[in-house]
């Protein structure tokens, strides 16, 4: 590791800047958290109270009483984990292919992949639903997972990242007689950990928060995921804001845990030992 001498003034300025953005990032979230502990009559108080005068667990209790948490939580875990695992794996494979393989029409094919994210998702909603109906995938885990696995965003990101890995490493492995599969597992994956960690977080977040698809695909409540189950509570006009905030807090807690867990893969992936610059 490189050691750099840094002046104390620079340290203070840098951390001050970071703390300002930290506040900007966290304040809306903090209000959400604080509101989730507020009882009726305290939500619309002005000036706002950051710490509720009469903090209550009622919103959380009501949530747990009015909805069955077990099944939706399990559904969310199953769907998000499988989607993330398969999506990251396929994206790394395809990213490697698009970055390092050499074949005709590679760029055209890649542009086609990229083209799929350029069409707004809303417009393909009905055709995809009809397709899943035809494939008898309604109300199944596969119906939730399959359409989300191939993710052009992830493929594109992995392609960009892997193209930054020096060709020399791959050539050297090839000299030793390695095939593409060996290179993928022994060279590409170990070096791509930071990027894989990044798309793991994104895919998991996206899948976990996704809530239109699980709702549309479910033909009964047993296939509801956590965000869908939480959002069901609440009337047309009588939106209970405190309970909604409590629901959101419950939904994002697992995400924060996953994020912390994935952190350690953000360690430096590439150490170019034995490689000449």
């Amino acid at each position: 590791m490189r050691k750099v001498k840094v002046s104390p003034i620079e340290q203070i300025v840098v951390h001050l800047i970071l703390i300002i953005w930290l506040l900007i990032s966290v304040i809306p979230f903090a209000w959400m958290l604080s509101t989730s502990f507020k009882g009726p009559g305290e939500i619309f108080i002005f000036p706002p109270r950051w710490i509720p005068k009469n903090p209550t667990l009622k919103n959380y209790k009501d949530l747990f009483q009015q909805m069955n948490f077990g099944r939706p939580f399990l559904n969310s875990v199953v769907v998000s984990l499988s989607t993330t695992f398969l999506s990251v794996l396929l994206a790394t494979m395809a990213g490697y292919g698009f970055a390092k393989f050499n074949f005709k029409n590679k760029n055209t094919l890649f542009l086609l992949v990229l083209g799929t994210v350029m069409v707004p998702g809303q417009i393909t909603m009905i055709p995809v639903f009809l397709l899943l109906t035809k494939l008898s995938l309604l109300n199944t885990y596969w119906g939730l997972i399959l359409p989300a696995i191939a993710n052009a965003f992830n493929i594109f990101f992995m392609r960009q990242f892997i193209s930054g890995i020096p060709d020399e490493l791959i050539e050297a492995a090839k000299m030793d007689g390695a095939n593409e599969g060996w290179i993928f597992f022994k060279v590409i994956i170990p070096l791509s950990k930071p990027a894989m960690a990044a798309i793991t977080i994104f895919t998991f977040t996206g899948s976990w928060n996704n809530f239109l698809w699980p709702l549309i695909i479910a033909t009964d409540e047993s296939m509801y995921t956590l965000p869908v189950a939480v959002s069901v509570l609440g009337g047309q006009y009588t939106e209970n804001i405190a309970m909604q905030m409590a629901g959101s807090v419950i939904v994002i807690l697992p995400l924060i845990i996953v994020f912390l867990f994935t952190q350690k893969y953000f360690i430096k992936g590439i150490t170019f030992t034995g490689l000449k610059g």
């Binding site: 909603m125 009905i126 639903f129 009809l130 109906t133 309604l138 809530f211 239109l212 709702l215 549309i216 479910a218 033909t219 009964d220 409540e221 869908v228 959002s231 069901v232 609440g234 009337g235 047309q236």
Partner: peptide, 22 residues
């Protein structure tokens, strides 16, 4: 058998349901 649908997205659910005859 009652299926609860969130108000905010009921519109999309009904639309896709009718289109797919589900």
């Amino acid at each position: 058998n009652i299926q609860a649908i969130p108000w905010a997205n009921a519109y999309d659910k009904i639309l896709t349901g009718i289109a797919g005859r589900q």
